[in-house]
Each structure stands twice: as structure tokens, then as C-alpha cells.
Design a binder for these strands. Structure first.
Length: 664
DNA sequence: ATGTGGGAGGCCTAACTACC
DNA sequence: GGTAGTTAGGCCTCCCACAT
């Protein structure tokens, strides 16, 4: 169910766009402003009932105005209003009984409007949706420059205990200046806030305001609970009730994530017509981990994977944070269910994953990192398995059993029959002849690294494809982008090799060098100018593939005294460290190297200073013979060797082009 | 000196009107 | 019915007066 809110800037002017929008979004309710129709004018849409409030200008023309259009099959009733404001309201039954009011406030209003707005709200039975163009600017809803009109609306919102559905997306674009502002507001009663998500269209569809879609999602609440001895999670909605007890060693974070994952699994199998869901959790850390693609926890990856699948099925899924213990009914219900599940005697958690960081707290499991690999032991039963490290695993507080036998190697499909399950600690009856099977396996292919434990109560598998599923999708798209100039730099997406010793600035320089950007070639971008012929020529000259060479690593500041780089260091002479050549010169010389230009002097960039820098004696620097083929990329050692004793008041400049470095 | 509020001016566009 | 011209609304930016 979707509600369309739009200042359409003339109903007739943008009628076709409106029809397209309604069909695309299958909107049930339309709240329009600036309809600009008279009483005698038609303001109707097939299948909709129209309720409008029109106004006339001083010459009798239709100006402003507001309207609510509601699908005829939705039960509704018009609410007559006693107000001077351009507002119209309807009581309608959607997923619940709601009052929907469309309002248009022309610009340039006074505090007298506050009284009128208060009078209006008193006539609207809650729960209420008040949607319209308020022509008000406030930081509360994302305006950069608050204005008096915004304060009037702020007071109105605060005084009537209303919630703002707006995110900070811009809703208006001024045609003349192209500036964006937020002047359309979607207000609602607090109890209705969780029911809706708010989204602005990317196109204005002929108006100067962007259409806003307010979508009602089916809300599913999830929660996790942990006591001294047990961990559980739950999910609840109208006809949904999930309660799961996790292994006692699980963290509350795992419980919260498992609840979300179980809901997603259920949605994947659901044949319900409902296509829009909102998962409300009180675990902000879970949402942050999911939102930031922080896949250290296996469940985060699995949740993202499920989200991708659901999205492909056309299911609109939203996750939102819901404060706990403040009286939100759904959250309280989920909390109760989770606490109830703590006392379950059976573990329903049988086929899913737990991160090692959770299992590590199991008193029978010991994990240690050895030679870059993790080795786990189930100490009680003397079972050893090597765990192949993956990026998803983070081991904390490692504990190592002293009883580790020598030369332990993992064995595929190893079978043991311990007395009880070493992982979940469930006691097994003595006459259980089958005992408990624990299978371990390790796998390492081009696609993934993983290992697995299987026991009586649950199976756990570690690891994931080395690159995320989403990442793989990007890879496929990138493969098709062959006409992209960056494609030649990075034809295959893979993990970017980073130099641990390189600082942030060095990384930026390297990144720019990789894509061929420099002040010389793309300085016009930094100066916010148009590229001239000379810039374009430079780009053509310098566009190259630097590959993974890291010769441009910033040199240590003390290189001027380095014995390695100075052939004949003069011990009795105090040298000020000579700076490395400027980026342009280094880039030019790298190009020279890549093009295998030999026996040529070091290239000097085209910024070469034409006039001496004030107060700096211009000391010509002799270029050393180039021998890149034997010695690799250009070195600045010859320059340093030829450095003169520098005065303390000299300005630092590039030893090649002699252009002074800018301060800082 | 700084912040705030209001008005003037400018630009764009829908509505309206006159004309063909 | 189509088109061109006119008008005024809508909303921005800029400027100025006033208050703190």
C-alpha cells in the first residue's frame, strides 16, 4: 500500500505524469498540493474519488489548493474542516484506520498560522497522516538554513506531538537557481510512525517538487535475550511467532542476528501477497553491522545474502531500529517471547552458523592461531581440527589446551563417539548406541575457504566466498564496462594491495597515480575549470597503467643523510633534507620508465618555474644519466648526491622543476 | 559585530485570454 | 482546436532595517 504525496504544480499540467506515477507505484491514496483547479474544473482520476480544496487569486484564477484522491475500493469518509488553510482530510481504512490530510501552506506566513494549524489538527482524529507542502525550512527536516516559517512549523509539530517521516532528502528544486530544499513535510501520529517508510522519487515529473512515496510495510519485531545460563531470540508479527534457543555460548549479538535471519528465511518461503516488510530490531549494532557490510559475523553475510535473494523476488524489505523498553508493543512482545525461549530444554538451533568467537567460550573448545592458521580442539574428546582462516573469523582471547598432541592434522570425515556433545554440552543417554558423530572438514578452493563442524545438535560451517556475493555481482558488471577508461587500470576486481607502511597521503598519491590523475593532468578539476587543450594533451600523454609498482612511496624525510643514497656523504656538512621531486615530475619519470625510455635525463614537469623564487638561490640540479632498464624505476639518489648545502631560510622546492612547494 | 526578520526583485511556469 | 501573448503565483536570493 503506497501513499503518493506530491506538489504537482498544476493538476492538469502534470496529469499524464500523475497517471504514470499512480500506475507505477499502485498508489492507493494521493495527497496533492498546488492543484490549481477551480471548483468547476475536473480534478478526477479513473477509479479514484476526489476531495479537494481550491483557492482563487485576486484575478479569479485558480492558485494553490490541495486534494486527496482515494481509490474507490478503499473504505473512506470525507472529514469536513473548518479552517482558512488550504487543507482537505479523509478518514480511510488502509492497513488500519487512518486520517489522511493534504495541506498546502503558501510561502510568507506569520505566527497566526500556528493557531490555524492547531485548530486543524484538533479536527483530525488520530492516528493521523498530515502530508503537504509547508514551505517551511528547518534543520529538523534537513534544511541547511532555518527560517522563521520553519520555526512556526517546529512549534506546531512539538505542540501537537507529531512525528516527522521525512529523511533528509531534498523535496524541491528551484528551477531558476537549481538549488535544492526541503519544504514538503510528512507528519504523522507517533503510533503510526513505525508503519511507514518515506522515499523521494528521483525525478520531478514536470513539477518543481519531487513526488514522495509513503509505503506501509508489514512490521516484524525481533529481539534477542541472554541470561547467565541461556541465550534465545524471537520474532513476532500479527500471525508470526518464532522462538529459538541458541547454544549457551552464543552472544547476544548472534541471537539478534539469528532472529533477523530467521525472519528473512521465512519471508523467502512465504507465499503471502504482502511484498513490503519492515523488520524492527532493538539491536543497533546488528543494523550497523548489516548496513556497513561488516561481514566478520557469518550471520551478517547470510542476512545480506538473503536480502539480495528477497530483493530479486521483488520483496521490498526495510530494517529499522526500534528503541526497547519504551512501550512499543511489538518490541515488548518480542522481548517476552525471547525470554520465554530461554527456558526451552531443546535447542532448535540445528543447522546454522555461529562465529568462532562465540564457540570459543565453550569450555570444551580450544582455539589457537599457529603459523597463520587456527587450530581448534574439542579438548574433552581429544579431537583436533585445523581451521582454515577466513576473513569472517576473528578470534579473541585464545585458549590453548596443553594436551595438544604432536603433528595434529585435520582429517576429513573424522568420526568420534564421545559421551556427550562437546559443542553444545547436551548430555546423551548412556544407552544411545549411536553416540554423537562429529564430522570435520576443511575446504579451500579458488572461490572459498571454509571449514565445518557437525555434531548432534547443530552444524556449523565457517567461512564464505572470499569475496562477497554482492562483490561478485559488481565484478560481472565491471567485466562489461570495457569502454570505461579505468577498466584498463583494474580489469579484474580484486582486493587492493595496500602497503602497510604507506600513510594515508601516500595511498592517495598512489591511487591517483594508478588512474592517471595528477595536478598536471587533472588540475583543472581541482581548480574547477574547464579542461583546455593543454590539459587534454597532458592527459593523453600520461594516461598509462602503473600496475602495482610502488616506487612512488613517500621517501623518509631523512633521506638527505642516508648513506645508501649518498655516494659521498660529507660528514662535516649539515644538510637539510632535500625534498623528493614533486608529484608531476615523479609521474613523468614513471611514464618514462614504463615506456622504456632509456638514456634520457630525468624529465622535468611543465610547471618548471620561469622566474626565480624570491629569496631562493636557483641552483640548477644536474640530471643523472637514466638507467631505468637496469636499476628499475627512477631514483632520486643522484639528485640528493648533488645537493648543495642549503640555507635555513630557503623555500622548499622540487629539485627537478624548481617550483616551490605550497605551504602545507 | 552578529543574528533575525521582512521586503524587493528576479526567474520560471501554469493558467488564462485573445486571436486565428 | 491550436497558438501566442499576458498575468500572477511560487519560491529563491539578496539586501536592509532592527534587535541583541
Amino acid at each position: 500500500m503506497t501513499i503518493l504525496q506530491w506538489n504537482c504544480r498544476g493538476f492538469r499540467a502534470n496529469f499524464q505524469e500523475l497517471k504514470t506515477l499512480v500506475a507505477q507505484k499502485d498508489a492507493t491514496v494521493l495527497c496533492l498540493q498546488e492543484i490549481k483547479v477551480k471548483d468547476s474544473d475536473s480534478c478526477s482520476l479513473n477509479g479514484f474519488n476526489t476531495f479537494k480544496k481550491y483557492t482563487l487569486g485576486i484575478d479569479g484564477r485558480a492558485v494553490g489548493g490541495a486534494a486527496v484522491l482515494i481509490k474507490k475500493d478503499a473504505p473512506h469518509q470525507h472529514i469536513p474542516l473548518t479552517t482558512n488553510l488550504q487543507a482537505v482530510a479523509v478518514r480511510v481504512t488502509l492497513h488500519r484506520l487512518l486520517t489522511v490530510c493534504s495541506i498546502y501552506l503558501p510561502p510568507g506566513r506569520s505566527h497566526g498560522d500556528l493557531v490555524e494549524l492547531d485548530r486543524l489538527v484538533q479536527q483530525l482524529p488520530p492516528p493521523l497522516l498530515l502530508l503537504g507542502d509547508f514551505n517551511a525550512h528547518s534543520e529538523l527536516w534537513g534544511s541547511e538554513e532555518p527560517r522563521p516559517s520553519g520555526r512556526v512549523v517546529e512549534d506546531f509539530i512539538a505542540g501537537n506531538d507529531l512525528s516527522i517521516l521525512n529523511t533528509e532528502s531534498q523535496t524541491y528544486r528551484h528551477p531558476a537557481s537549481g538549488s535544492f530544499t526541503v519544504i514538503d513535510l510528512s507528519l504523522c501520529s507517533p503510533s503510526a510512525h513505525i508503519d511507514f517508510t518515506w522515499e523521494v522519487d528521483t525525478d520531478q515529473h514536470g513539477s518543481d517538487h519531487f513526488p514522495i512515496f509513503i509505503t506501509n510495510h508489514k512490521v516484524i519485531f525481533t529481539d534477542g535475550s541472554k541470561s547467565d545460563s541461556a541465550v534465545a531470540c524471537s520474532a513476532t508479527a500479527d500471525n508470526l511467532r518464532i522462538q529459538i534457543r541458541l547454544p549457551d555460548s552464543a552472544s547476544i549479538f548472534s541471537a539478534e542476528l539469528l532472529a533477523i535471519y530467521q525472519v528473512l528465511t521465512l519471508l523467502e518461503c512465504s507465499t503471502n501477497d504482502q511484498q513490503q516488510f519492515l523488520i524492527a530490531t532493538d539491536s543497533l549494532s546488528s543494523l550497523q553491522a548489516i548496513g556497513n557490510f561488516n561481514i566478520k559475523h557469518p550471520y551478517v553475510f547470510k542476512i545480506l545474502e538473503k536480502c539480495t535473494l528477497l530483493h530479486k523476488k521483488g520483496i521490498d524489505l526495510v530494517m529499522a531500529w526500534c528503541p526497547s523498553h519504551v512501550g512499543v508493543m511489538g518490541n515488548e512482545r518480542a522481548d517476552l517471547l525471547a525470554k520465554e525461549a530461554l527456558s526451552f530444554t531443546t535447542y532448535q538451533f540445528c543447522h546454522e552458523h555461529l562465529p568462532l568467537v562465540d564457540m570459543e567460550t565453550n569450555p570444551f573448545l580450544r582455539i589457537q592461531q599457529q603459523n597463520g592458521k587456527y587450530v581448534a580442539s574439542i579438548a574433552k574428546h581429544n579431537i583436533w581440527v585445523e581451521i582454515v582462516y577466513t576473513k569472517t573469523l576473528e578470534i579473541k582471547n585464545l585458549v590453548w589446551s596443553k594436551n595438544k598432541p604432536e603433528n595434529v592434522k585435520p582429517r576429513k570425515g573424522e568420526l568420534r563417539k564421545p559421551d556427550d556433545c562437546p559443542i553444545c554440552n547436551v548430555d546423551r543417554p548412556e544407552d544411545d548406541s549411536a553416540g554423537i558423530n562429529i564430522y570435520t572438514d576443511g575446504s579451500n578452493s579458488n572461490d572459498a575457504v571454509a571449514c565445518a563442524f557437525t555434531c548432534c545438535t547443530y552444524q556449523t560451517q565457517f567461512g564464505l566466498p572470499d569475496q562477497m556475493l554482492i562483490y561478485r555481482a559488481e565484478l560481472n558488471e565491471w567485466d562489461e564496462e570495457t569502454d570505461n577508461k579505468l577498466h584498463s587500470v583494474q580489469p579484474v576486481i580484486s582486493e587492493w594491495k595496500q602497503d602497510a607502511q604507506m600513510d594515508r597521503r601516500g595511498e592517495i598519491v598512489m591511487a591517483r597515480a594508478r588512474i592517471g590523475h595528477s595536478h598536471l593532468t587533472h588540475g583543472y578539476l581541482l581548480r574547477r575549470e574547464r579542461a583546455n587543450d593543454k590539459d587534454l594533451e597532458n592527459i593523453t600523454r600520461l594516461w598509462f597503467q602503473l600496475g602495482e609498482a610502488d616506487d612512488f612511496r613517500p621517501l623518509p624525510e631523512s633521506h638527505g643523510r642516508s648513506g645508501e643514497q649518498m655516494d659521498h656523504p660529507q660528514e662535516d656538512c649539515v644538510y637539510r633534507p632535500l625534498p623528493p621531486p614533486c608529484r608531476e615530475c615523479r609521474l613523468l619519470n614513471k611514464v618514462q620508465h614504463l615506456l622504456r625510455v632509456e638514456s634520457e635525463p630525468l624529465e622535468v614537469c611543465e610547471r618548471r618555474a620561469t622566474t626565480p623564487i624570491t629569496g631562493v638561490p636557483r641552483t640548477p640540479v644536474k640530471s643523472a644519466p637514466n638507467d631505468f632498464s637496469r636499476n628499475g624505476p627512477p631514483s632520486i639518489a643522484p639528485l640528493i648526491a648533488g645537493a648543495k648545502k642549503l640555507e635555513s631560510d630557503e623555500v622548499a622546492c622540487c629539485p627537478l622543476c624548481q617550483v616551490a612547494f605550497l605551504p602545507g
